[in-house]
Structures are given as structure tokens and as C-alpha cells.
Amino acid sequence: MKSNTTARKHLRRTALIAGVVAAVALPLGLNASAQASAPAPAKVSAVAPRSVSGTPGQAMTRVADFYGAYIDAKGDYEDPDATLATALRKHYLTPDFALRLAAWEEENGVDGVLRAQNVPARWTVTDNGAVGHGHEVIVTLTFGSGDTTQKIKLFVLLERYDHIVDIGTTSNR
């Protein structure tokens, strides 16, 4: 299990680094020269490859990035990265919400970002539209596998500057 989890963790980190490099290279016009020198990818199978896309500043992308990285940091049971999880909270949450969330966690004894003691096996992120001067995104976390799954739906509210100001189990609408 550790090798599978570690492999996923390394793959996601590699993809994150590649995304950052692409984000820097595209505006500089370096992408065309990189593509010209790169060999064509080999066909692996007849199944269409899956893809994930997003844009900077898009609320849904920002929440998906946060939850994906946070779950990776917390999810390696043999080697969780608490330092990364803390840094992600500092980067994505407003200071006020981080304090409220810490108090909620103390009272409830579970991770406030995940609303659970463990990490989900799967998650989906869905846009829920504008709310006042902010934006709401629905995060559905699926825990367990097979016949023993449990889903938790969280409503994540971002301020207009794309920082998370609330995570709750009811909509702000």
C-alpha cells in the first residue's frame, strides 16, 4: 500500500511541478521550443486519456488544487507531511478562518478541512456559483471503498481574492 500511495504522491507532485513550469514558460514563449524538441508520446492503449484542466483565479480550480494537495499531504499514513498540510492551510485559508477552524477542530476532535479523522478515497469539486462578494464550491468527499462508503458534502466559500473564508456542511446561499 505504501508504494502505491507513495507513487501517487510523487506523480501528483511531478504534475504540480510540471504545471508550475508550464505556467511560467507559456507567457515567456518557451513552450513552442520545448514542444519542438520533445519526442512524440507513445500510444499506451486504445482508451482515451483522462485530463484535468483549470485556470488561475477560477474558484473551482483553486479549491480542487487545495483539496488535492491537502489530501496528498495528509493521506500518506506511513509518512504524512504535516508541514505541507500546515503550509497549504496558511496559503489557502484566510487568517481569521484558520483561527475559527482550529477552534472547531479542538471542539470536535477531527480535521476541519476534511471534517473527518481520516482522508477520503475520492473527492469531487463542483462549482456552486457566486454568493455575495464571494464564490461557493461544493466538495464531495468519499470515504471507504466497495460497499462501505460514506460521502460528506462540504460547502467551501471563497472571498473575492480567492482565499477560503468558510468550510461548512450547509450552503451559504
Rank of each mutant, 00 (worst) to 15 (best):
H91W: 13
A38Y: 02
K151Y: 06
T148K: 09
T169D: 07
I167A: 04
V125S: 00
L88T: 04
R100K: 15
E105L: 04
R173Y: 08
I71V: 04
I138M: 05
R13M: 11
T83E: 13
A130W: 09
E136V: 06
A73E: 04
L28H: 15
V119R: 04
D162W: 11
Y67S: 07
D111Q: 00
V131Q: 05
I71P: 01
M60H: 07
T61R: 13
S37Y: 10
A102E: 15
S53L: 01
G112Q: 00
E159F: 03
V52G: 13
A116W: 13
G134M: 03
I164R: 05
G109F: 03
R115D: 09
S37W: 12
L158Q: 02
Q35E: 09
V24S: 06
S3V: 12
H135P: 08
S171R: 02
A42V: 11
G168L: 07
V131A: 05
D147M: 11
I167Q: 06
Y77K: 14
V63S: 03
A25R: 12
R8T: 11
E107V: 02
V137L: 02
T14H: 06
D166L: 12
A69D: 15
A7I: 08
G146M: 02
V63M: 01
L101R: 01
N172L: 09
S45I: 01
T6D: 11
A32D: 13
I152N: 04
S37H: 14
Q150V: 13
T14E: 02
R50E: 14
L99E: 15
A82L: 08
Q58C: 06
W104K: 08
A40Q: 10
A38S: 10
T94R: 01
Y92F: 12
L88S: 05
T94I: 01
P95F: 04
K90E: 15
V119Y: 00
T124P: 01
G57D: 08
K151W: 05
V125W: 04
N172K: 09
G68V: 04
A98L: 09
L84M: 13
D96F: 06
T94Q: 02
L141P: 05
T14Q: 09
R122L: 08
M60N: 11
T142E: 10
V44D: 11
G19H: 10
L114T: 07
R50A: 10
T83Y: 07
T6C: 09
D81E: 03
E136W: 07
T14C: 04
R8H: 14
V63Y: 01
L16C: 10
P41C: 00
A73D: 05
R173C: 06
L84K: 11
N31Q: 15
N118R: 07
A87W: 03
V125M: 02
P41I: 02
E159Y: 10
V119C: 06
Y161P: 05
N4W: 07
N4L: 14
P80R: 09
D76W: 04
K74S: 06
V21E: 12
I17Y: 15
A102T: 14
P120I: 01
Y77F: 12
